[in-house]
Design a protein around this nucleic acid. Structure first.
Lengths: 121, 121
DNA sequence: TCAACAATTCAAGGATTATTGAAATATGGA
DNA sequence: TCCATATTTCAATAATCCTTGAATTGTTGA
């Protein structure tokens, strides 16, 4: 993750609807959700959700793939992980005071990260 | 860190000059830097740096304190740590795929986080 | 081919954010 | 008090972002 993508990612996450979309896509998992389902869930118009999805894709935070009539969007886990890493390492220079809280969170999903056996369904 | 502050923080970090300022303040450490020094280092006008500093403060990412004629700004380590945590936990639902890269970064500054004895100078 | 569905694109507008330079505020020393 | 320094505030402009609804594109099944 370079600075350009990080700036775009922070911008993408700074909007309430888009943050909401990322959250639901992360929870939805690898199967993703259709644009229509996202719009319904977020309670915004189709054209509005399309605008925000394009913004999220421009930042590289989501992936899309057509599935028959629908277009399925899913969270780009690698990009989100890259952003966390950028924030801790590049932006915050790995400062212990900043990374300390992350260590706690990391600890509680470290098993999953290692074994990759507890993916949410 | 609640969602409102996270949104403001992401917005604050989505601007090149502001990201640059945060980086230099993190590196500068607890002593911080004066507004003038920040402006000079970032190569922007005093009034422009003031605008961006206000934005960063609004997001809670920096602290200020007057020191004689100067106003000294410093990174709010707790807020930055809170943002990393929000991104991993609240936004990304603690997904192993996303947190995995963070575990690696966390590991290399975990000693410092525990002993607090290896702060960057 | 035609109708219906799913989603995007486009254009217009309104709202927010960024930049600039001039004026104002606050502090410390002569 | 007066001046110089450090910084902020203000007003105007420019640029970007968000929302809305209408028109368009792509897909499927009758």
């Amino acid at each position: 993750m370079d600075q350009r993508q990080a700036l775009a990612s922070f911008g993408a996450l700074s909007q309430e609807t888009r943050l909401q979309i990322i959250r639901m896509l992360v929870v939805a998992g690898p199967d993703g959700m259709s644009a229509g389902a996202i719009a319904e869930n977020a309670e915004v118009s189709p054209s509005n959700v399309s605008f925000h999805l394009k913004e999220l894709e421009r930042a590289g935070l989501i992936n899309q793939q057509r599935e028959s009539r629908s277009i399925i969007y899913s969270a780009a886990y690698d990009a989100l992980g890259g952003l966390v890493r950028f924030l801790m390492e590049d932006c915050c220079a790995g400062h212990p005071e900043i990374c300390a809280p992350a260590v706690a969170v990391a600890a509680c999903c470290a098993d999953g990260a290692t074994s990759m056996s507890k993916k949410a369904n």
